[in-house]
Computed example of a mutant assay.
Amino acid sequence: MSLLDLVRPDLRAFAGYGSARRAGASGTIWLNANENPWPNPMDADGRSNRYPAPQPEPLRQALAALYGVAPERLLIGRGSDEAIDLLVRALCRPQADAVVVSSPVFGMYAVSARLQDAPLVDVPLVDGPDGFSPDLAAIGDAAQARGAHLVFLCSPGNPTGEAIALADIAALASRLAGRAVVVVDEAYGEFSEVPSATMLLAAHPNLAVLRTLSKAHALAAARIGTLIAAPELIAVLRNCQAPYPLPTPSVDLALAALQPAPLARTRERIAQLRAERERLSARLAALPGVRRVYASQGNFLLARFDDAQLAFERLLAAGVVVRDQRGAPQLGDALRISIGTRQENDAVIAALTDMEVAA
């Protein structure tokens, strides 16, 4: 069974929309896309009157270099969210091909499955002495039993912070070869000590990796995400993607951010955030009223509280907004706290210290 056999039969030969920019024509007078010939008066660069390239080659090359993969393995989209949605729509027939997740986890996997009417199979994370971890044997069993076409692994996990060893990912991909695509979401990969699953792509065609410039590269508003997978799967998804997914200003910003000097500064800030993560973790764990702080490979911490409502309210009163996780499975007493600057993290500590004094 080939990888393309997992694609919906009606989409295997689907050509998508043949936009003006995909036609491949070249010239100096552009009259093929019904664009306005004059730039907007507020457009300082004078380029936004023209549709952008669907997959800009300079950005494609820069991201391929950043992630250490061949450019033909890349699909660039509007954050990781678009790639998740495309994967579910292209690989899962409604009410037939299941999506496997392990909660608590990033909610967009379930949202995309729901929108496609694809069966959602949840194999919960196991909360053990060393933190949360996926039960990969049970995930493999569920994927086979339910006819899943997609398995989402979040590594580092969001909101739980755990990273999955490459050997374990490879074993699951091998087990599900010809049955399902295993997608490793590495949105927080730059903060992790575990190497990227991109190292496994050559040996496992049914493996795909999600990366983003939103977190470590501080470009959340630019919405630049990347799916890295087998070229034949990338080609199918490209035909399912919107005609012009990447706004020119976002592409320009991403290209500027991936130059050597900004990249060096980004790496410095990643090191700072990792150091602050460990400092904040230790300080939080020492506070009365904090039940548990989970080890994290991301740029956030998951903490359990004796009174999570009071902790949430005291943080808000101090102007600190954190993510309330109490509605998530297994997290009825938990908050997720992003790692900020040293001063911002000190504000968290101060607010929670005051909570204990006033309680």
Rank of each mutant, 00 (worst) to 15 (best):
P329A: 13
D130M: 07
D45H: 12
G140L: 07
R12T: 09
V293K: 01
V101Y: 02
A358F: 08
L237A: 05
E356Y: 10
L335H: 10
N32P: 00
G147F: 10
N36F: 09
I76F: 09
R267H: 14
D45C: 08
I228P: 03
Q55T: 04
A203E: 15
R279I: 13
P134L: 11
C240Q: 15
A220W: 04
V293A: 06
S214D: 14
R277T: 08
R21I: 01
I337R: 01
A208K: 01
P94F: 13
R60T: 15
L6H: 09
A334E: 02
N34S: 05
G178Y: 10
A286S: 15
E268L: 14
D10Y: 01
P54C: 10
V357W: 06
A110F: 04
N206P: 09
F132W: 11
R21S: 07
R291P: 00
V236N: 05
A165T: 00
R267A: 15
L331G: 00
D333C: 12
Q330L: 15
A261G: 04
V7E: 06
D43K: 08
R12P: 09
A163G: 07
F106Y: 14
Y244Q: 09
A221M: 13
E35F: 05
Q144Y: 02
I349K: 01
L136G: 04
P129K: 09
S26K: 09
I270L: 05
A202Y: 01
Q95S: 13
S80N: 13
P243Y: 06
V236H: 03
A171G: 03
L246Q: 08
